[in-house]
Each structure stands twice: as structure tokens, then as C-alpha cells.
Amino acid sequence: MSTLEIKDLHVSIDTEQGEVEILKGVSLTINSGETHAIMGPNGSGKSTLAQAIAGHPAYNVTSGTVLLDGEDVLEMEVDERAQAGLFLAMQYPVEVPGVSMTNFLRTAKTALDGEAPTIRTWAKDVREAMENLEMDQTFATRNVNEGFSGGEKKRAEILQLELFKPKFAILDETDSGLDIDALRVVSDGVNRAQENNGMGSLLITHYTRILRYIKPDFVHVFVDGKIVDSGGAELADRLEDEGYVNYEKTEATA
């Protein structure tokens, strides 16, 4: 049983106009096996939350804490956060020319586990995970994300999620740009990781569509850098009908 605790997190970015605060006090606790959906309009800071937890250098944490089983995540380097059990499925996975998926996956797995995976079981694990995600085996020989379609990039992220077995995954708009079949395949992958490894997840999305495939235990409404409402799965349905308008109005008059 693990816990990821985000307490009163404030994050800013440097712009040409100076430092701008994006996250204005986010608090959230996720336990193993739980799925938390974060929903909110464009520009509300959802992706900033994801990037800040993963440690992207462009985001300055000005106050607050992030604890993984009591350990201070914000004190860790980016790679140490991953080694501690955090995984960020990125909205825009990055191309790394000349580095094959096979080489990348094995190098990352070795770094995460502190030892090289057994060659035979690893090859089998990779092959099976690719089959489950309906990925062509030639993916293994292609360079990381290079020339991948949008859908292929997202599948490759979930492939890593299944192989690396993190304690907590942050899925940053994994559903964007996916057609309905790809959405199902990718969602199945997330569900498998949750069932097999007891992973907790933070699912960032604009749309309720993915929540048909990945059932959230909690839904949080994110507006202007803060969580403004929380509830169960039924909250997502309400958002589907009403949108974020009511919350944004409240913010404006507050």
C-alpha cells in the first residue's frame, strides 16, 4: 500500500512578462489502486500539475510538498522520481532519434530496477505487452517515438507503463488524439497495470469519454490552478451535461 500526497502545491513558470503562478495551492492524496480523474478547461493548469510532479525543469515549485510514502519527491532528481515509482505518460511524447525502442526500454528498466532484467523473460514481457496493445513487433526496432503517429506514441507510453510497473501513474491527456479503437486499447492497458500491480493513477483529461473505459474512484474539477470540487464518478456525468461554466463563474466572482 503506497500513498502519493500532494499538499498545497504552488507552481509558477517564467515568462517574458515575469513569473506567473499557475498552480495556486493543490492538495490531493492518492492511494494504491485508486483512480483519480482531474478534469478542467484548457489552461487551468492540469498539465502543469503533471509536469511539476515529474520534475520538469521549466516549472518552479514555490511552496507545498509532494510526498511518496513519506519521501519528499520535490527533493529528488527527475530520474530519482521515476525510480521511486512515479510515471508520467506524456501528452507529447518526445522523439529520440537513433535510440531504438528495444535499447531504450531495456536501459530504462535496468535503471528503474537497479539491475538488468533477465534477457529471456524480458524479451517475452516486451513481446506480450506489445501484443496486448496491438502494436506491431517492428516497433521494437524503430527509434523512440520517431515517426510514430499520435496514436502510436500514446500506445508506446502505455507499453512503458505496463513494463515499468510504477506505483503511481500520471496520465496527461492520454486520450487526446485517439480514435475510439485506440482509446479502448490504451484504456485496457491502464486497467491491466492497475489490476496487476495495484497502481494508483491520476488521469488528466478534458473529456469524459475515457472515463467510460477507465472507471474513476474520484473526480476532481480543476479550475484556475486549484481543485474547486471533488466527488465520485457521478461528478463526471454532471460535467458532461453542464460543462465548467458554473465553476468558472464562481471563480470570477469570488
Binding site: 525510480q83 508520467l88 506524456m90 535510440v99 515499468f164
Partner: peptide
């Protein structure tokens, strides 16, 4: 950032990137 976010330490990540660059 992408490679480090997958647990790969910075020196090794840099080498991977250079190696990949040359490999092409």
C-alpha cells in the same frame, strides 16, 4: 527530460542522446 522521466540517470541519458545522434 523524457529519458530521465523514465528513470535513466542524466549522464547515461546524455550518452544515449549523443549515441542516437551519431547512430543515424
Amino acid at each position: 527530460f523524457y529519458l530521465m522521466a523514465r528513470g535513466i540517470p542524466e549522464p547515461l541519458a546524455r550518452k544515449l542522446i549523443v549515441r542516437g545522434f551519431l547512430n543515424e
